[in-house]
């Protein structure tokens, strides 16, 4: 549940979601659920030359299981808080 809470804090920020099929979509994080399904708004495909057919869509829903990486805004990470939360999670508390 750590990452669920963590991503919830990032709602409203600009992120890039990289899928396991190499497609990368940039957009505003609209919402995330417990399965790490991600909804993005104001999306655009990062590598448009490679995916010319791909959506110039406004919003999309991405299945959590197909996400490889989520690139965060540099100032969107509270390192101390994350460190602390990760440690608590590892202790099983």
């Amino acid at each position: 549940m750590l990452f669920f809470s963590y991503f919830k804090d990032l709602v409203g920020q600009e992120v890039t979601v990289e899928l396991k099929n190499d497609l990368a979509i940039r957009g505003t994080l609209h919402s995330v659920d417990q399965y790490l399904n991600i909804k993005l708004e104001n999306t655009r495909v990062v590598d448009q030359d490679k995916y010319p057919h791909m959506l110039s869509v406004r919003n999309c829903f991405i299945r959590g299981s197909v996400v490889r990486y989520v690139q965060l805004p540099p100032d969107g990470v509270d390192v101390d808080l994350l460190h602390d939360a990760a440690r608590r999670e590892a202790r099983g508390g």
Binding site: L55, S56, V57, R58, C60, R63
Partner: peptide
């Protein structure tokens, strides 16, 4: 279904 979106463009 990996992804779904509304396409209006």
């Amino acid at each position: 279904i990996s992804l779904h979106a509304v396409s209006r463009d």
